[in-house]
Write a protein that binds this DNA or RNA. Structure first.
Ligand SMILES: [Mn+2]
Ligand SMILES: [Mn+2]
Ligand SMILES: [Mn+2]
Ligand SMILES: [Mn+2]
Lengths: 233, 233
DNA sequence: TAAGACTTTTAGATTAATCTAAAAATATTT
DNA sequence: AAATATTTTTAGATTAATCTAAAAGTCTTA
């Protein structure tokens, strides 16, 4: 519904889903990526729109004091913009927990549904959902769930590619989670919590020979091992 | 997101939330109300818009073959429009069950949240949600939940105002459910499933003297008793 | 440091959803 | 059956979100 749906009285302005999605994209490409600012182009690619559309939106978000924006200089979130973004990420990840823990979805089936659910606006709903789920700290992909104040739990990890032969680690997350990676991991029986032991390192292609849960053995490309975030055990 | 988001290939066209809400409004004022057709004005009031906006939308919905529309003659749903409407009602009511059964919300707190959740598009989500809830046939307000084919369970009922003194009934639903009525019923400890015995009928104001669950006794106005749908026991 | 390449913004349109004011059609009352 | 009232539609604008094409700014590299 494109209409001016604010609420000035309560000081909570209601944003359109589109505005919310832009804020998430900006968060991802500034803070999460550690770059400080997000560029117009990066946002355009993330949002699947023309760069001109991004410029337009940046003007509007800037007017609403959700972002710091200077022409040609890139954008960052203001405190209130960051607040909105982390709340969205919190909602997204809590819903992902719900889908997996309660409705038995698999981790590669939930993202698109959570993309929709995250825009449902009801603080009380999220409060109760969180409680119902037992206040989880990480979602089914191992990603940290911001708390109600926007604080994001820290994860300590080392990528599997950085483990030495002989070391064993437990999978606690993924660097990126494209569908193709999740499908592949499902096939070789690797999921969050799986124990992986590095048996050999092959210098030629930087692949690893590994053992999964002290059972099956197999090879793993560098590209995959770079994406697996492990806790050494 | 106002953009042309169809999918012609799958023959499932994705509607905007606004279009979906109009279809629900048309369903309510044509089929549910038993009138055959919904009028522009009734839809405008339901949707909280100007009648001119309704006319505009009717043209668009008609173009998409979701409604039968002839200028000045009122509108009715086509089969595909009815399909969409009943699916929305199904989703709305299933989510209401979830909110009450799983998250412990009260029946007067859930409607607005369900209004948002009903627009989440994922048939598999609804399939699993329905299963998770144990395939309920009625929602927390006693309203029937359409099945996956759009069939709506029939309710047999008699309003409390039509019970004779001496008769006892169980509350199975409400005619209308404004917030004020639900709050009042909560206060006098009446909910779906509550047993009510009619002790006396007062001719002057058509009020009833009743007993609730064989315990508390009290008076009830005609306006309230007209709204309580009972099953005689 | 100037040319070329890339990025970003501006200009000008389009579409969905809305509005108000006015005209047209239909319904109700004298 | 007129006159009046009510309902519905048309006309003309507006706003959010998008697009393409072109201009302007910034970066890279010879
Ligand atoms: Mn996700
Ligand atoms: Mn996730
Ligand atoms: Mn409801
Ligand atoms: Mn209901």
């Amino acid at each position: 519904m494109p209409s001016p749906y604010f609420t000035k009285l309560t000081k909570i302005m209601l944003l359109t889903q589109t505005e919310e999605n832009y804020l998430k994209a900006i968060f991802k490409h500034s803070e999460e990526a550690g770059k400080g600012v997000a560029t117009t182009n990066a946002i355009a690619i993330e949002m699947n729109t023309a760069p001109a559309s991004v410029t337009d939106m940046l003007r509007r978000l800037s007017e609403k004091k959700l972002i710091n924006y200077e022409k040609y200089k890139g954008v960052s979130l203001t405190d209130s913009g960051r607040q909105v973004a982390t709340e969205l990420i919190r909602k997204h990840r809590l819903w992902e927990c719900f889908l997996v823990d309660k409705l038995d979805f698999e981790w590669d089936e939930i993202h698109d549904i959570a993309e929709q659910l995250e825009h449902v606006n009801s603080p009380e709903l999220i409060r109760r959902l969180n409680e119902y789920l037992g206040t989880p700290r990480f979602d089914p992909h191992g990603d940290p769930i911001p708390d109600e104040h926007g604080n994001i739990p820290e994860r300590e990890f080392i990528t599997l590619s950085n483990l030495e032969p002989g070391q064993t680690g437990e999978l606690i997350g993924l660097q990126e989670h494209p569908d193709s990676l999740m499908k592949f991991l499902k096939k070789i029986n690797v999921a969050i919590g799986t124990k992986i032991t590095v048996l050999e390192y092959n210098e030629f292609d930087e692949s690893l020979y590994i053992q999964i849960n002290n059972e099956k053995k197999g090879g793993l490309s560098r590209k995959v091992s770079d994406n697996l975030l492990m806790k050494v055990i």
